[in-house]
């Protein structure tokens, strides 16, 4: 998936807003929202919040987790544990990015929060790289005891896609080389019987 498609997916998350107008319920296909009451907080999908915000029809309420102390704790936990920590939102990075872009003035301590989020992201990326490395190193030292399977659990969609261009394709390539290697060996064994050449039809 392309980054903008990921952002598109992230935009369906709900976010709190405070409207400055009154309006009745709106029955969207993705669920009913409203009623809008001026000054009363409510939840709507991000794509709509961005639209209303652009027209200055609402203020955006940053999600609960976008708070300095909470994020600090999260950052420390991320550093302490070997596995990935569950993020408060499955589209954590995307929601943050959208809020920074559209509602920066609503977030208290925005600069600090940006730094912390970046730190969390970097820590996770580093872990992800180590995990990826494990995938290949493991191949050479096949006999490993305990669970060698790298856990991707709790990775957000965005992070998975950051590993995407590289990891699955590299693994596919390794698997392909192994297949060719095996094929060639079995071909060598039967060279005398027939002059079979391996088919190039495998992509």
């Amino acid at each position: 998936m392309e980054p903008d498609e990921l952002e598109f997916i992230g935009e369906k998350e709900m976010i709190g807003i405070i409207p400055n107008f009154n309006f009745d319920l709106i029955h969207l296909i993705s669920g009913t929202i409203g009623p809008f009451r001026a000054g009363l907080p409510m939840h709507i999908p991000i794509w709509l919040a961005m639209h209303l915000k652009r027209q200055q029809k609402c203020r955006i309420v940053p999600p609960n987790w976008m708070e300095k102390d909470l994020l600090e704790d999260l950052k420390e936990e991320e550093k302490r544990t070997a596995n990935f920590v569950k993020m408060p939102d499955s589209n954590f990075m995307i929601v943050s990015k959208l809020i920074f872009a559209y509602a920066a003035e609503e977030v208290a301590d925005i600069e600090e929060i940006k730094t912390i989020i970046k730190d969390i992201f970097d820590t996770r990326q580093a872990k992800l790289r180590t995990a990826m490395d494990g995938f290949f190193v493991e191949e050479k030292t096949t006999q490993f005891d305990g669970s060698t399977q790298v856990s991707f659990t709790n990775l957000t969609t965005f992070e998975i896609h950051s590993a995407r261009p590289f990891l699955p394709y590299a693994l596919d390539l390794v698997a392909r080389l192994e297949r060719v290697c095996q094929q060639q060996q079995s071909n060598l064994n039967e060279t005398h019987n027939s002059s079979s050449h391996f088919s190039s039809s495998y992509y």
Partner: peptide, 15 residues
């Protein structure tokens, strides 16, 4: 024609 068939890599890794 059988040599020209292009197959998807069904052993490709997916998340």
């Amino acid at each position: 024609i059988s040599k020209r068939i292009i197959r998807p890599n069904v052993m490709g890794h997916v998340f």
